[in-house]
C-alpha cells in the first residue's frame, strides 16, 4: 500500500510520480548494489567483461500504429535501455503471452517486424518463450524482452554533473500522440508517426565523440519532463531547460493544442537526452546529426528540481508527470 491507495491503479504505470513510488517499494524488497542504481539497465562484471542487462514488457494498444508496432517496440525498447548505459546491445530474449483467439496472421506480422528490427539494431534473438492464456487473461498479445550488451568504452550512470549541457536528438511527443490518435478513435488525420527506433548507433557515435558524457536517458513514459526530473533528483542538482529550444513538430504541437496536452509529458520511443560537459557539447551534437538540439543545462541551484524558461522568458517549475493526460475541452 502506498499512501492512501489500497489498490494499484493505472496511474502506477504511467511513468510519473506514483510509478516511481511503486518501483521504489519493489526495489527495497530486493535491495542490492546493482539494482539500487535504478538505471535503465543493470551493470556488472563477469570475469573482466563489463555487461549491461535489461528487461522490459510491452502491452501497447493498438498493436499496430503509424510508425511501428508492438514487435518493433519490443526490440527497440530493450536495445535502447541497454544503449542508455553506454553498452553495445548483442543478444535479446523474446517471450510472448498470447490470448487465445489471436490470428496467426497477426503473430506473423509481429514476428516479421521483430526480425527486421533486430537485424537493423544488430542484435540476435537467442532465447524465447510462448504462453497462451484464456480469453480475457491478456489483451491479444503481450511481449517481454530482455537483453545483454557489453560495455566497451565507458558506462553511463544516473548522475549528471554541474554545468553539464543537455542535448536531445530530435522532436518530442511523436510516439504518444500517434498512439493516442490510433487508440482512442479520435478521428484526427495527420502524418504524425511514432518515433520508435533503435538508438544504439547514435549512442555509439556520442561515446566516440566525447569522454565526458555523464548520463543518457530515453524519455519514454512520462515524457521529457519526467526524465529530466528523474535525473535532477538522482543527481541532487538543478536543471534548467528552454522552452524555445525544445523541438516539437508543428503537427504534433497542433494535436496537443487541440486535445489540451502538454508535449513535455507525452511519451517518446526514439529520443534520448544526453548530459555532457559543455566543452564537448557541439562535438556530441554533430555526432548525433540532424535535428539535434541543446535544450538546457545543469545548475547548482534548485537542487532536485527542473525549471523551464518559458517562451516569454519567465522561469517556472516543470514537475514530474502527476496524472495521465486525457483529451479535454476545458
Amino acid at each position: 500500500m502506498i499512501g492512501i491507495d489500497k489498490n494499484i491503479t493505472l496511474a502506477y504505470g504511467n511513468g510519473g510520480r506514483l510509478m516511481h513510488e511503486l518501483i521504489d517499494m519493489l526495489r527495497s524488497k530486493f535491495s542490492n548494489k546493482i539494482l539500487n542504481e535504478l538505471s535503465d539497465a543493470a551493470e556488472f562484471k563477469v570475469n573482466s567483461t563489463r555487461l549491461a542487462f535489461s528487461t522490459d514488457s510491452f502491452v501497447v494498444k493498438p498493436l499496430f500504429f503509424p510508425g511501428g508496432d508492438i514487435g518493433k517496440l519490443a526490440v527497440c525498447g530493450t536495445v535502447n535501455d541497454i544503449s542508455m548505459k553506454g553498452a553495445t546491445p548483442l543478444f535479446i530474449s523474446l517471450a510472448f503471452i498470447i490470448e487465445e483467439g489471436l490470428e496467426f496472421s497477426i503473430l506473423e506480422r509481429i514476428t516479421s517486424s521483430i526480425k527486421q528490427s533486430a537485424a537493423k539494431a544488430g542484435v540476435l534473438v537467442v532465447t524465447g518463450d510462448v504462453k497462451v492464456v484464456e480469453k480475457g487473461a491478456a489483451d491479444k498479445i503481450f511481449i517481454n524482452t530482455a537483453g545483454i550488451g557489453v560495455i566497451k568504452k565507458y558506462s553511463l550512470g544516473t548522475k549528471a554533473k554541474p554545468d553539464d549541457v543537455i542535448i536531445i536528438n530530435g522532436p518530442i511527443a511523436e510516439h504518444g500522440m500517434a498512439i493516442l490518435n490510433a487508440r482512442e478513435n479520435l478521428g484526427f488525420l495527420s502524418t504524425i508517426k511514432s518515433d520508435c527506433r533503435n538508438l544504439n548507433f547514435e549512442v555509439k557515435r556520442c561515446l566516440k565523440a566525447s569522454k565526458n558524457i555523464s548520463v543518457m536517458r530515453d524519455p519514454t513514459r512520462g515524457g521529457l519532463a519526467t526524465s529530466l526530473n528523474e535525473i535532477a533528483y538522482s543527481s541532487n542538482l538543478g536543471i534548467e531547460v528552454y522552452e524555445k529550444s525544445i523541438p516539437v513538430r508543428a503537427n504534433v504541437r497542433k494535436l496537443c493544442d487541440v486535445l489540451g496536452f502538454d508535449p513535455m509529458y507525452v511519451a517518446n520511443e526514439g529520443k534520448f537526452i544526453c548530459f555532457v560537459k559543455e566543452k564537448d557539447a557541439m562535438k556530441v551534437k554533430h555526432a548525433i546529426g540532424k535535428g539535434t538540439r541543446i535544450i538546457g543545462k545543469v545548475t547548482s541551484s534548485h537542487k532536485g528540481e527542473v525549471y523551464l524558461k518559458t517562451q516569454i522568458g519567465a522561469s517556472r517549475i516543470l514537475p514530474m508527470l502527476e496524472a495521465d493526460q486525457l483529451p479535454r475541452i476545458c
Binding site: D262, T310, Q311, I312, G313, A314, S315, R316, C330
Partner: peptide, 15 residues
Amino acid sequence: GTHTMAIARAGIKKL
C-alpha cells in the same frame, strides 16, 4: 480557467 492555465504555463505573473 483556460486563462488561469495559460498564465501559469507561460509564467506571466512573474513578469
